[in-house]
């Protein structure tokens, strides 16, 4: 590690200014559970580190339009302790809670998970299924973007130089909606997903699915929003036949790699299995809402 400059500004404007004026490579530091590991391994060598944990706008969760605005520096542990978010969007909170261990939970953030742009990031499929957006601040002011538009390929994002994710917004859940996230890992804990599935669905009074979003992680260069998988559910009572179609659509959408964690064949098959199990939990939640 070379001697980097470390700054911990108190406002978003200051942070943006620091990044804009940086000479050489500058990086935002949220929990640091990706960034510090990358620096230690020699994979990143920033000249400037801008820590966002001192910016109050970025460390709070606030109610907004029936949903929530989650600051970019809110840790997994804080999110897990937020009863309101957890009861409305248990899938998102559970996805976030899967990241790392107790120690990691005290630091890691949704925004960091998103901006690190790993195809296997656990919270991202859950956020995409919930149709979350984020507020981005940069040298040219603020803009909104969908969560699904941030990662462009492994390790790469659509953020322009000097742009920071300030907060993430999750809309109100439908009165009869439910969400869930499950991942498959070869170990019992602390492992990288072979496949992750986020499902968010809404039922009508007759138990017919009226809306659904299904997102898959770890089976393609970025998390996927799988329309065919959603279509398999919409208009059905989410019965076995619909579940079979969902599983088939999830498997069909996979474009995974062969590696030590899993072969293409295995990943593809397991994606269908996990999609089905995730949908079953989301369905149960929607029914009890």
């Amino acid at each position: 590690m070379n001697t980097s400059q470390y700054e911990a500004p108190g406002s978003v404007d200051e942070a943006v200014a620091l990044l804009a004026n940086a000479k050489g490579n500058a990086r935002v530091l949220a929990g640091g559970t990706d960034l510090l590991v990358q620096i230690r391994m020699g994979m990143a060598d920033p000249a400037l580190i801008v820590d966002i944990k001192k910016i109050s706008e970025m460390t709070t969760v606030t109610a907004e339009n029936g949903g929530f605005r989650i600051g970019a520096a809110v840790s997994g542990a804080e999110l897990n302790e937020n009863a309101a978010v957890k009861s409305m969007w248990p899938g998102i909170v559970e996805a976030m809670d899967l990241i790392g261990s107790t120690q990691i939970q005290g630091r890691c953030t949704l925004a960091g998970n998103l901006c690190n742009a790993s195809p296997a990031a656990d919270s991202v499929p859950a956020m995409i299924a919930a149709d979350m957006t984020c507020t981005i601040a940069g040298p040219n002011g603020r803009r909104e973007a969908s969560v699904g538009s941030i990662a462009t390929s492994p390790g790469k994002t659509s953020l322009a130089d000097g742009e920071i994710v300030v907060s993430l917004f999750v809309p109100a859940q439908n009165a009869t909606g439910g969400d869930a996230y499950l991942r498959f890992i070869p170990r019992t804990e602390m492992d990288i997903a072979v496949v992750g599935v986020g499902v968010n669905l809404t039922l009508d009074g007759n138990g017919v699915c009226t809306a659904a979003r299904v997102s898959l992680g770890a089976v393609a260069p970025t998390a996927l929003l799988v329309d065919d998988a959603a279509k398999a559910l919409i208009g059905t009572k989410v019965d076995d036949a619909a579940m079979d179609n969902l599983a088939a659509a999830a498997s069909a959408a996979c474009n995974p790699i062969n590696d030590k964690r899993g072969t293409i064949e295995f990943r593809t098959k397991v994606a269908g299995v996990i999609a089905r199990r995730t949908a079953a939990i989301a369905l149960e939640r929607a029914r009890s809402n």
Partner: peptide, 15 residues
Amino acid sequence: LSGSFMDYPMPRAAD
């Protein structure tokens, strides 16, 4: 090929 704990798991309490 299994030269680190990323590729070589060992049992943990939950196992």
